[in-house]
Amino acid sequence: DRPALRVLPAHPYEVASFKRCKVNIDYHIEVNGSFYSVPSALARQSVDVRLTAHTLEVLHGNRRVASHLLLGRRGAYSTQREHMPAAHQAHRE
């Protein structure tokens, strides 16, 4: 068997689950009671979410459009500046 053995992968296997979400008008999705931003152009559209033990990835059209670390408490928001429309970015500053 030794000749058939291969090197173990550099990273351990990570279990992931998938969920379908609809983006709210405020360009956030709700997952497990917390809210995560996506690009504002996707407001009111459906996206797929890939959840692991520590991260959340948002997929649209088989392309990753956002990635966040999971938040530990319900009602918390994770908003990335580049997901905001220009008017909201200006107001934030």
Rank of each mutant, 00 (worst) to 15 (best):
P3N: 11
R63M: 09
I29C: 09
H91R: 00
V23A: 06
T52N: 08
R50L: 14
E14V: 15
L59P: 02
Y27A: 07
L56S: 08
L51S: 06
I25T: 14
A87M: 00
V7F: 12
I25R: 13
S46E: 07
R92V: 03
R6N: 15
R81C: 00
R50H: 06
N62C: 07
R2Q: 06
A10N: 13
M84I: 00
R2V: 11
E57T: 12
R64C: 04
H60G: 05
R50I: 15
L8Q: 14
I29K: 09
E57Y: 03
S34H: 06
N62S: 14
L69I: 05
H83F: 02
Y77D: 04
D1T: 11
V15F: 12
H28W: 05
V15S: 07
T79K: 01
E82F: 01
A76G: 05
H91T: 00
R50K: 15
R81I: 03
Q80I: 06
N62P: 02
G61N: 12
Y13C: 04
L5Q: 15
E93C: 00
P9K: 03
R81Y: 02
S17I: 15
L59D: 10
K19N: 09
I29T: 12
H88C: 00
P39Y: 07
V23T: 10
F35G: 05
L56H: 10
A76Q: 15
R64F: 01
V58F: 04
Y77L: 02
V23R: 05
L59G: 05
K22E: 15
L51Q: 09
A76N: 09
A86P: 00
V58C: 02
L5W: 14
